[in-house]
């Protein structure tokens, strides 16, 4: 451990977890008045109900103001604390600590994958549930649907010709939008959500597709 005068520096500020699909990143701001100084940081974490603070070796004396604790907080039914302190020359701050972090309740659910196919008057939407973060790409995937059986999607559809938007909430992964106008550009975006405590949402990108021209009117010409 680094020998330093504790409390010689102000604490880091704004320490929080940013969590999306169980990827849990601890982030903070530099201590007041030390922006730009050669400050380094050290992070520790704690599992609620257990005995000791634990080191995160990859986040000892680091320059950046974030630390990926996804592996250490991967059991989403546990609750956690994390703390960080600043070190500069021979001075170090007291620890700045998060509140109790509960991944199961606090992770943001990322947007689903979206595939659109269209014909003259309808658009078929296929949604693919977002995946839980995984350490290695080769690891087996776990869908967020398997963690949250009540996962739902809010599908918003925008008709670029009429400027009209409507939304509907679906639980299954396929949806057909009917009674549409031919040869019209429609844009869709989808938000995943889980009933329960309010949590931040990650909207999908906008996916646009044009319905086909009306074949019957084409034949009359």
């Amino acid at each position: 451990a680094v020998l330093c005068i504790s409390g010689g520096l102000p604490k880091p500020t704004n320490i929080t977890f940013l969590s999306i699909n169980m990827r849990n990143i601890l982030q903070w701001s530099p201590p007041e008045g030390l922006q730009g100084a050669e400050v380094t940081y050290t992070v520790q974490y704690f599992i609620y109900g257990q005995k000791k603070w634990l080191n995160k070796s990859e986040c000892r004396n680091i320059n950046r103001t974030c630390c990926d604790l996804s592996v250490e907080t991967s059991d989403y039914e546990h609750q956690y604390y994390a703390k960080v302190r600043a070190i500069w020359e021979t001075n170090c701050s007291k620890w700045a600590e998060t509140g109790r972090f509960y991944p199961f309740l606090e992770t943001q659910i990322g947007p689903p994958g979206i595939a659109l196919t269209t014909d003259e008057k309808s658009i078929s939407i296929v949604l693919m549930a977002p995946e839980k973060w995984k350490r290695n790409p080769e690891d087996s995937s776990l869908s967020m649907q398997q963690i949250y059986s009540n996962l739902k999607y809010n599908v918003s559809v925008y008709n670029t010709k009429s400027n009209r938007t409507w939304s509907q909430c679906v639980t299954n992964h396929t949806l057909v939008l009917g009674w549409l106008e031919p040869d019209t550009l429609y844009c869709v975006h989808v938000v995943s959500f889980v009933p329960g405590p309010p949590r931040l949402a990650q909207p999908s990108e906008k996916h646009c597709v044009r319905t086909l021209k009306d074949q019957t009117s084409a034949l009359k010409v």
């Binding site: 704690f46 609620y48 109900g49 257990q50 005995k51 509140g99 109790r100 329960g196 405590p197 309010p198």
Partner: peptide
């Protein structure tokens, strides 16, 4: 119930100093 708990989560949990017990 969720909204009620969320409104006081940080206050109540910050008063719990015995983090080694769940």
């Amino acid at each position: 119930l969720w909204e009620a708990f969320r409104a006081m989560k940080d206050i109540v949990q910050a008063k719990d100093n015995i983090t080694s017990v769940r």
